[in-house]
């Protein structure tokens, strides 16, 4: 089994600045204002047409935005944790789109979303054990070989855990990176959501996350829903990763905590539902930029 070392940031990589998820609602505002923002991230699946080739507004706007900004492809369709074979069709489409738009970064999720011929349109949880690790590592190897580039794997938001899990998520991800050379995408909100839902300390998780492998951070908002009555008689609450509002104060402070330890990283504001007007989204990105700059200034002062 390969034993990889973390790669230094390659030329043409994303800047250590805040980026934003690219939404059709904002195409025109972005082109008109050409805002000061580090980069944009998109789901490549939304730029693959509807089964008969791809053109029209999605390609038109992406071409123009790509000419102005670095891009990150954040895949949601590879189903890297499925025991079924990786879809060659999908890998081929990804490779074609990458050749066309030359994204600086590509990431996917530690999750599965297909079984047999069915795609579930959701990122589903995996038990963390040696068998899963072997499977996911083989799929990451296959995808990286086929696409001819390094990918990042993101820690997911989960709502259920499995009795057959034998290791922690962080150990799983660190070992996956070591075996395959893939990078990691640390989603601060996912960490917080999981910590709440499964009862662990989010700060410890953030502190233990192997920063040397982290090439991107996600910041997002979540919702709280009823989780039934606890044994203590108190109504339980479950956090759901909805990406439909600003990140909460705790997520921001966990972000600050991570960059204090690890330094700045490309940091994405993810907002996929109840999408605000562009200035509001841009303001969130500016906030992340400011935090990273302040942190940098503090480091300089200390030296």
């Amino acid at each position: 089994m390969a034993d990889h070392q973390p790669l230094p940031a390659a030329a043409g990589s994303l800047p250590d600045r805040a980026g934003a998820g690219l939404k059709p609602e904002h195409y025109r505002a972005i082109l008109a204002e050409q805002p000061d923002i580090g980069w944009f991230e998109l789901h490549p699946e939304n730029y693959m047409g509807a089964g008969r080739g791809a053109g029209g507004p999605p390609q038109y706007y992406l071409e123009r935005i790509r000419a102005l900004y670095p891009l990150s492809f954040h895949g949601v369709g590879l189903s890297i944790g499925s025991t079924g074979r990786l879809s060659r069709d999908h890998l081929q489409r990804l490779k074609g789109l990458m050749a066309q738009y030359q994204p600086e970064q590509f990431s996917e999720h530690l999750a599965w979303s297909s079984h047999g011929s069915a795609y579930m349109n959701d990122l589903l949880p995996l038990p963390y054990n040696q068998a899963t690790l072997q499977l996911v590592a083989a799929h990451v190897d296959e995808a990286q070989d086929y696409l001819g580039r390094r990918m990042l794997i993101e820690n997911p938001s989960t709502y259920a855990t499995f009795s057959c899990s034998e290791m922690g998520e962080i150990d799983f991800l660190a070992e996956l990176a070591r075996r395959t050379g893939c990078g990691l995408l640390l989603d601060i909100n996912n960490a917080y959501v999981c910590a709440h839902n499964h009862g662990f300390d989010p700060a410890s998780y953030i502190d233990a996350f192997p920063a040397e492998w982290v090439s991107e951070i996600h910041i997002a908002g979540h919702a709280m829903i009823d989780d039934g009555i606890e044994a203590s008689g108190i109504a339980g609450q479950l956090l759901v990763d909805t990406h439909d509002r600003p990140a909460c104060a705790t997520v921001w402070s966990l972000f600050r905590r991570f960059i204090r330890r690890a330094g700045p990283r490309p940091a994405l504001i993810e907002w996929d539902n109840a999408i605000p007007a562009w200035p509001a989204l841009h303001a969130e990105a500016t906030r992340a930029d400011r935090m990273m700059a302040q942190n940098h200034a503090m480091h300089c002062l200390a030296e």
């Binding site: 699946e45 509807a50 089964g51 369709g77 879809s87 011929s117 795609y119």
Partner: peptide, 13 residues
């Protein structure tokens, strides 16, 4: 008829 493609835009034909 659940989806059979990772591309959501292909769903609903």
């Amino acid at each position: 008829e659940p989806p059979t493609s990772p591309i959501l835009a292909e769903y609903g034909a």
